[in-house]
Simulated scan of single mutants.
Amino acid sequence: MGKVAVVTDSTAILPDDLGAAGELITVVPLQVIIDAEAHEDGTPETSPEAITVALSAKRQVSTSRPAPALFAEVYADLAARGYTEVVSIHLSGEMSATVESAQIAAGSAPIPVTTLDTRAVGPCVGFAVLAAATAILGGADAATAVANARARAEATRSFFYVDTLEFLRRGGRIGPAAALLGSALAVKPLLAIEDGQVVVHERVRTAARALGRLEELAVDFAGDQRVEVVVAHLGAADRAGALVEHLDERLAAGLESRSVRCVELGAALAAHVGPGLLAVVVSPALDPG
């Protein structure tokens, strides 16, 4: 059987401790442009603290996809290391041309590369990546790994709150939620990702109500399932900590021995949501073993 590698991008927000799966996974960074100066996502210049300061100071912050040449280098390196096939899993093509870069590079790669547009962002992409890597570690081929990744992305739900829609508007990532721009001062929208786009899930009148609803949405979606949960934030550690504490308690049965993972967004996503973001991502847990 061939040796299959997994490639993803820096928006996946993978756990620090990947165990054996980490040997299979390569992360390609997006570019973050701050006042016309480009930096790789994940460097000190693009830390959550640095990007929060930059956004709060109203500096110009934007992002750019990895060039196809960078993916080509990664695929060629994996081939040189003995891999015979690659599964390349990325954030929604509706929000970034990253998956397009991967597809372009795949066309001239020295080994077969299958690309997957997860139609998702952030931790949901990470859950898909881990599903693929876990399948490969269990002896699955590339096609099965892709199918598992797609299924997990489709089964995962992401809900989030932003203090303002302005950053999503600036970056062109607002999608159908643009309909709220005219009334943004009158409502606090709870957003979700559906079919690769940002949509309005529901509207509430206060920030406190919005944050409470995030908890309820996560609990309702989890139901009686075995789940893994991530809470993500940008410059909102207190809010995130409180949500983690509540979900750890309320979802204890479904989490089993796990706990809710709390992360602060990297710059490639933070640039488009702004300080104050709070998100919760709920995914059916992988089968044990």
Rank of each mutant, 00 (worst) to 15 (best):
T206K: 07
L211Q: 08
A236T: 02
L18F: 14
I174S: 02
Q31A: 14
D77V: 03
V227D: 01
P176E: 11
G139C: 09
A186I: 09
P288Q: 13
A131R: 04
R169M: 06
V129P: 06
S96L: 05
L243A: 10
T11G: 09
T144D: 15
T144W: 04
T63C: 10
D238G: 08
A285I: 09
R65S: 14
T118D: 13
L91T: 02
L191S: 00
G223K: 05
A153Q: 01
T164L: 06
A270V: 09
A67L: 12
L181A: 08
E45A: 15
A54M: 03
A50E: 09
E216L: 14
A192I: 01
D195R: 13
E215K: 10
I111T: 02
G19V: 10
L247G: 09
A12D: 10
I34C: 01
A54N: 02
F221I: 08
A36G: 12
H233C: 02
E45W: 02
I34L: 12
A76P: 00
A106Q: 09
V282A: 01
E264V: 07
R170T: 08
V187M: 03
L78Y: 05
S64P: 01
K3A: 11
A153Y: 02
L116G: 07
I136K: 06
K3I: 05
G139P: 09
I51E: 03
E245N: 12
L116F: 14
A131T: 05
L168E: 08
A50K: 05
G241H: 13
G241P: 09
R239H: 14
T114C: 00
A97W: 07
V263S: 11
V229S: 00
R261D: 14
A50L: 02
R65D: 10
P284R: 01
A67K: 10
V7W: 02
